Amino acid sequence: MLTYAFWNNKGGTGKTSLAFQTICRYADRNPSKRILAVDVCPQANLSELFLGGLTNSGSKNLLERQGLIPRCSVGGYFQLRLPSPFTAPDFSVQDFLTKPAEYNPTIPQNVDLFCGDPLLELQANAINTLANTQIPGTDTWIEIIDWIKDALDQVRDEYDVVFIDANPSFSIYTQIALSTTNRLVLPVMADDSSRRAIQNAFSLIYGLKLPSDIYSKYAFVTKLEQAERSLPQVHVVAKNRITQYMGPASAYAAVLRSIEQDVSILINSNPKIFTFSQVNKGIVEIRDFQTTGVVAFARGCPFYRLASGKLDIGGHRVQIQELYKTDCIKAIDALVDML
Rank of each mutant, 00 (worst) to 15 (best):
L224D: 05
E121M: 12
N200V: 05
G282Y: 04
H316W: 08
N240G: 10
A190F: 02
D213R: 13
D157F: 14
P83D: 06
F289R: 14
A190K: 01
N200H: 07
G12L: 06
A19T: 15
L97P: 03
D160A: 06
P211T: 13
A249V: 14
Y215Q: 07
A44F: 00
I107R: 03
I320E: 09
S193H: 10
N268H: 08
E143T: 08
L97R: 08
R305K: 15
S212N: 11
L63V: 13
V40S: 01
I148L: 15
Y206F: 12
T138N: 04
G309W: 04
T222V: 05
A88G: 02
Q79W: 05
N56F: 08
M189G: 08
K149G: 02
N167M: 13
P232G: 03
E260T: 06
V279H: 03
S308T: 15
T129P: 00
V318P: 01
K239M: 11
Q43P: 03
S32F: 05
F91C: 13
V294D: 13
S171D: 14
S32Q: 12
L184Y: 02
A44R: 02
L186F: 00
R299H: 12
C72M: 12
S171K: 12
S230L: 13
T55E: 10
M246N: 14
E48L: 04
A197Y: 05
N132L: 14
I242P: 00
A124V: 10
Q94M: 13
E158F: 00
Y252E: 15
R287V: 14
L68P: 02
A101K: 08
L208P: 00
I286R: 02
Q321S: 01
F276I: 09
R81W: 02
